[in-house]
C-alpha cells in the first residue's frame, strides 16, 4: 500500500511524470481571465473565488486520463489486480497520490493566484480551506471516471463528459464557501456540506471505482 503510494509519487516527480502541468495550467487560466473579462479590479475581485475554484477543478481534470490508463497500458494494473491487495485500496491510494501531486499543489498556489485576481483579504483563508476540503473529492470522483474509461482508446474527452457533472455539488459548495468568505459572510453551512460530500465520496466511491475497474480488466 505504502509502496504503491511511494511508487506513484516517484513516477509523478520524475521526468515525463507530468507533475507541474496542472499547476502551469492553473496559472495560465488565471492569467487569461483578466484578458477575457477586462482589468477592472472590482470585477476581478468579485469573480476571483469562483474563477480560482473553476481553475483548480479543470486543472484536476487535466491529469485524470493518465491516472489509471498508464498502468492499464503497460500491464501493471493486471498485476496489481492479482496482487494480495484489494482493488478498492489500489484505487484509493491512486486517488491519494493524484491529490498529493495535483490537488495539494493547487491548494498551495491558489493564494498567489488570488493576488493576481484581487481576491479580498478575508477571502484567502476561506479559499485555501475550501480547496483543501474540496480537492480530495475531486481526485476521488475523478478516479471513478478514470476507472470507467480506462479501457477506451480515446477516453479523455468522454472522461470529462462523465466527470464534470459529478463535480457539480463539490464545485457549488466549495465555491460558495470561498465566495461567502471573501464577502465576509457566514460560511458554516456550505463548509459542512462540502466536508460531508468529501467524506462520503472518500468512504463510498472507491467501491464503485474498484467494481468498474474489475469489469474493465476482464
Amino acid at each position: 500500500m505504502i509502496a504503491l503510494l511511494l511508487r506513484d509519487l516517484k513516477l509523478a516527480f520524475r521526468a515525463g511524470g507530468g507533475f507541474g502541468l496542472g499547476l502551469a495550467f492553473f496559472l495560465i487560466l488565471t492569467v487569461l481571465v483578466p484578458f477575457s473579462v477586462g482589468p477592472q479590479s472590482s470585477l476581478l475581485s468579485s469573480i476571483a473565488p469562483g474563477v480560482l475554484w473553476l481553475g483548480a477543478l479543470l486543472a484536476c481534470l487535466l491529469s485524470l486520463d493518465r491516472l489509471l490508463a498508464l498502468d492499464w497500458e503497460d500491464g501493471s494494473l493486471d498485476l496489481l489486480a492479482t496482487a494480495p491487495v484489494p482493488l478498492e485500496s489500489v484505487v484509493t491510494i491512486k486517488a491519494l497520490a493524484h491529490w498529493l501531486t495535483t490537488g495539494l499543489p493547487l491548494v498551495l498556489v491558489a493564494p498567489l493566484l488570488g493576488v493576481l485576481l484581487n481576491l479580498p483579504v478575508a477571502g484567502f483563508f476561506w479559499l485555501v480551506i475550501s480547496l483543501l476540503l474540496g480537492t480530495p473529492a475531486l481526485s476521488v470522483i475523478g478516479t471513478f471516471g478514470a476507472a470507467l474509461t480506462v479501457g477506451l482508446k480515446r477516453g479523455g474527452l468522454l472522461l470529462s463528459l462523465l466527470v464534470l457533472p459529478l463535480y457539480v455539488p463539490t464545485l457549488i459548495f466549495g465555491a460558495e464557501v470561498a465566495r461567502r468568505g471573501a464577502a465576509g459572510m457566514e460560511t458554516t453551512t456550505p463548509l459542512l456540506m462540502l466536508a460531508g460530500i468529501t467524506a462520503a465520496v472518500i468512504a463510498l466511491l472507491p467501491f464503485a471505482s474498484a467494481a468498474v475497474l474489475r469489469v474493465n480488466l476482464r
Binding site: F144, P165, L166, V168, P169, I172, T189, I197, L205, A208
Partner: peptide, 21 residues
C-alpha cells in the same frame, strides 16, 4: 449501470446543492 447508480446519487446531491445556491 454503475454510472447510472452513482449518477443518481450525484443528481440528487446536485439538486440540493443548486437549491442552496
Amino acid at each position: 449501470s454503475v454510472l447510472c447508480l452513482v449518477g443518481s446519487v450525484f443528481a440528487v446531491l446536485s439538486r440540493y446543492a443548486v437549491n442552496f445556491w
